[in-house]
């Protein structure tokens, strides 16, 4: 097992409020790890710190990438604690959002094409004047994006405005867009929110399918217990910013602390 992402003793404070304290996470390559916890436990804050939206008050986030140097695979560690979101995406961490953030007025295809922009090598002048090198890039981008849309069953909607898609497909498009950045680690923020049981099952299948196909590591927040118990190999539980439990789905289901966090503790007056 090779380590992919490590969060060391991360604490995030907003003024006097400690949203997350001493959060530790080690993600291995190829894992699907879940993050659960009651509302306001600091799950999305964790995501925002990893993706560079916030700079943590304390702690360090390290991303490990393996590079092929002269035929030898060398593992390199990169400190991304203070990197910008776009730099982190370029390294290979993509995310989706809790409240869908598609480019609403653009078409489905354009949404995916934009995620390819980070690999564009032409500058704005050669791109504007459509130099052959840029035309090749544009063609490759289109082919890749169409293939991705086909993979996720969105191909027939490619020219539709993304806001006109039904809710479940918008979630799917958000995943497609994240995949287009060619990530090694995918962060899914409540991908099953607002889905009916049927859609949730489809989503679980999709997550397993893209994990295999794109050789991904997935870290996801989810409230939908069947989904999280069904896909995740390991689960972390947050409550008031503190990690109260970590383990396999079975262990978590029987953990007294987790049950207390969700259902409350009986107080004897």
């Amino acid at each position: 097992m090779t380590l992919l992402l490590e969060v060391k003793d991360m604490t995030m404070q907003f003024g006097g409020l400690t949203a997350v304290s001493n959060f530790n996470l080690r993600l291995n390559k190829g894992e699907i790890v879940g993050l659960i916890g009651p509302n306001g436990a600091g799950k999305t804050t964790c995501f925002n710190v990893i993706t560079g939206e916030y700079i943590p008050t304390k702690g360090q986030i390290v991303f490990y990438i393996s590079e092929n140097v002269n035929g030898q695979i060398v593992s390199k560690e990169i400190d991304i604690t203070r990197s910008r979101p776009d730099q982190i995406t370029k390294l290979g961490i993509a995310r989706t959002f809790q409240n869908i953030r598609l480019f609403k007025n653009l078409s489905v295809l354009e949404n995916v094409l934009i995620a390819n922009h980070l690999n564009v090598k032409s500058n704005f002048l050669t791109a504007a004047f459509k130099f052959p090198a840029y035309q090749r890039e544009e063609r490759e981008m289109r082919e890749k994006s169409l293939e991705l849309l086909k993979e996720l069953g969105l191909e027939k909607f490619k020219n539709e405005k993304s806001s006109s898609l039904p809710y479940g497909l918008q979630r799917r498009l958000e995943i497609a867009r994240a995949l287009a950045t060619q990530p090694k680690l995918l962060l899914l923020d409540e991908p099953a929110a607002g889905m009916n049981p049927q859609e949730s099952i489809e989503l679980m299948n999709l997550i397993n399918q893209i994990k295999e196909k794109f050789d991904l590591t997935i870290f996801m927040i989810e409230h939908h217990m069947p989904v999280i118990m069904g896909v995740c190999e390991r689960i972390l539980v947050l409550d008031y910013g503190i990690t109260i439990a970590e383990g396999t789905p079975k262990e978590i289901q029987n953990n007294q602390k987790v049950i207390d966090a969700y259902l409350g503790v009986e107080t004897i007056a």
């Binding site: 776009d86 934009i114 564009v120």
Partner: peptide
Amino acid sequence: LLIDSSYGRAFKAIREDEKAAQAMGVSL
């Protein structure tokens, strides 16, 4: 021509949603 290129799409992405554009690797 510029708007028709990848850079034009990046500009429009910023207009539509800055946070999402940044998460897609567009340097704001």
